[in-house]
Design a protein around this nucleic acid. Sequence first.
DNA 1: GCTTGACCTCAACTTAGCTTGAGGTTGCAC
DNA 2: GTGCAACCTCAAGCTAAGTTGAGGTCAAGC
Lengths: 146, 146
Amino acid sequence: MDKNDLIPIGVLARRTGLAVSAIRFYEDRGLLCAMRTMGNQRRFLRSDIRRLSFVLIAQRLGLGLTEIEEALATLPMGRTPTLTDWQKLSRSMRSQLDAKIQLLTRTRAKLDECIGCGCLSLQRCQLYNRDDRAGAAGPGPRYVLD
Amino acid sequence: MDKNDLIPIGVLARRTGLAVSAIRFYEDRGLLCAMRTMGNQRRFLRSDIRRLSFVLIAQRLGLGLTEIEEALATLPMGRTPTLTDWQKLSRSMRSQLDAKIQLLTRTRAKLDECIGCGCLSLQRCQLYNRDDRAGAAGPGPRYVLD
DNA sequence: GCTTGACCTCAACTTAGCTTGAGGTTGCAC
DNA sequence: GTGCAACCTCAAGCTAAGTTGAGGTCAAGC
């Protein structure tokens, strides 16, 4: 393992755009693991840049650190992941994305029906009444939300 | 104003699916305003069920309470909103939704390119290198994210 | 060999969005 | 007219995802 492949935290921070404190925090959370110099300073693998890039992308997609942690658990720690490793991960992320887009699209469709009749506000609206009848059985704006 | 139109907090909670504590919290935040009985108990308008339903939907769309507060500010407080009031609001929500869907769809497209080559992990990948060269000028997985 | 910037730990603070608990009051049904 | 569920306030606590600060150490260039 070439010495050049080990980078200090500041470099990792500059390369990912993350704050140094955030990287230390991620290491505590176990998203990342670092070696140490004799003087106790962290040294990361170059491939951790990509690991953190993945974290940023996944966060942007609305995943919490815990979910991201689980996803990353499929990658090897302390060793540069292979192409196949990353591809598997990316594909699983893609399906999460799909699901998210579908949910929003469905919500939009429901909302469109509602705009037409103002059902968020009026007793006489079909959709609202449906929701309202449901109020006896279970509460909430379930019709639009589910 | 009919007495039947005034409901106590517990009923509002059951009808919206929210916790009583959450409703009190929202009232503190100014998302909602309540009248009081002689004995200092809150009494809400029936139309507040819809007001809160809106809050739930907007939250689901990823808006923060502050943004929701601003949106709701266009509605009358303490008076049942009209159909037009709600329609205006729903339409503005629809455009936020559109934007959100677009962002995710773009991200998905970028990610698709990446799955093909494993660019999150490999030096030789075009996308990655682009991102990497950018590393000198500005950090991060910007290529996928922006 | 010394200076200085990058690094270290640990504890406390931040914002958002609530929940929980203590201690007390109201209002409706019998 | 009394019991008790539902209500009240206020303060403290919680999770997520970090940031900030104090006080101290490391390492690389001159």
